[in-house]
Design a protein around this nucleic acid. Structure first.
Lengths: 221, 221
DNA sequence: ACCTGAACACCGTTCAAGT
DNA sequence: ACCTGAACACCGTTCAAGT
């Protein structure tokens, strides 16, 4: 005990706040937020549960850190592009990141203290919009619309099966359980999805995003 | 013990699934999802924890039931109105309901089996859009955009302080902690909110909603 | 039929120690 | 400085009983 038998010096790597957070994200990615406990995280990190409390005050602080790390993964709007393509790229990145970490959405509405990566991100987006010509009074409306759409899309996407490959199968199962007499329109829409998704080349997120961007562009004129 | 001393026959009311669910919603409304445990719910209902398992299989089933009850609270689009005002009213209702039950958003992305109220609701919205002239291929895009915006707005609203009255104070506290040299644009936007919110008469949700509805209207033409 | 007490395997967290 | 064992007050859930 304590003599580290048969293991390389890799286990000597001291625990840091950063390693703790990326471990927590890995656990949540793999098994959802419910799988993330102090005990499971300690196991993942090869350490005893109580050790974690030397790097964070409590579990809340871990959740705050995870959210800030997720924001850090979202690509900042490229500063050299026009506002529309810069904002578009940033929204696509946000959507990909939220798809990778679906647990983050449920966390977002309970976290109240934004971390440095979150602030840096907001700063960059606001700067992009202003550079694009949006007056400060309009920037708030534009950002609210953009992020509401992005987060809301992620919420709905997280409620569906992970892989897009499974989608046709899911729709079929759904259709079988659905009574087309009580829900005729719902059944029609599901059928449309089932038949259309074969040759589906457009991403649903981009369809709505481009409508939102159109709205913003019209706000500028 | 067991002789029900000094209490009226009100305690005789038998527990039903419905009473169980509205009790669960009351507990979550008051203290958040974290306050809802089998034990706290039993206490709220004046019953012992194990009694609940005679009406639901497990806690998951309670959460599913709560979500369906929340959907049931959202007003269906009035059938006699034009599609735009009908959809607008329904979106406003959804937003109010989600504001009343902020915990519902975090639940939505994990629930996978829609209840009857949820299905009935979707059916009515889809019917309204089709009656308004949207081709079936477009209804999916329209509904996705509408609900993404609505849910996402609710997510962001839930991350803020409950009362709109506290908002100016919050912004001020936020501004004090924010370094205006590293986050100049963020600071500007916060200042704009602080000064503008005094004479603020428009609801931010409606600003974005009307832009979304404009987009949909243009899709029809 | 409807309710329950006691018990099980879990949680997050504290405290007093170990190196 | 960094880590930990044992304990505390909680969780959801099972099981075998009580009326």
């Amino acid at each position: 005990m304590g003599s580290n038998p048969g293991e390389g010096p890799t286990t000597r790597v001291p625990l840091t706040r950063e390693r703790l957070l990326s471990g927590a994200i890995a656990v949540a990615d793999a098994g959802g937020l419910g799988a993330l406990t102090i005990r499971s995280l300690a196991e993942e990190l090869g350490v005893k549960p109580m050790t974690l409390y030397h790097h964070v005050a409590n579990k809340e602080e871990i959740l705050d850190g995870m959210i800030d790390a997720v924001f850090g993964e979202i690509a900042l709007p490229p500063p050299d592009a026009g506002w529309r393509s810069a904002i578009r790229e940033r929204a696509l990145s946000a959507r990909q990141v939220l798809r990778r970490h679906p647990w983050a959405i449920a966390l977002m509405d309970s976290r109240r203290s934004p971390g440095p990566a979150t602030l840096r991100h907001h700063e960059a987006v606001i700067a992009t919009l202003r550079r694009g010509g949006f007056p400060i009074e309009v920037v708030g409306h534009a950002y609210s619309l953009l992020d509401s759409y992005t987060y809301g899309f992620a919420v709905q996407e997280a409620a569906l099966p992970m892989d897009a490959d499974d989608a046709p199968l899911m729709v079929e199962v759904f259709l079988e359980q659905l009574d087309p007499d009580t829900y005729p329109n719902l059944a029609d829409l599901a059928m449309e999805f089932a038949s259309g998704s074969a040759g589906e080349d457009v991403d649903e997120f981009e369809v709505g995003l481009d409508l939102v961007l159109d709205s913003l562009e019209r706000l500028l004129a």
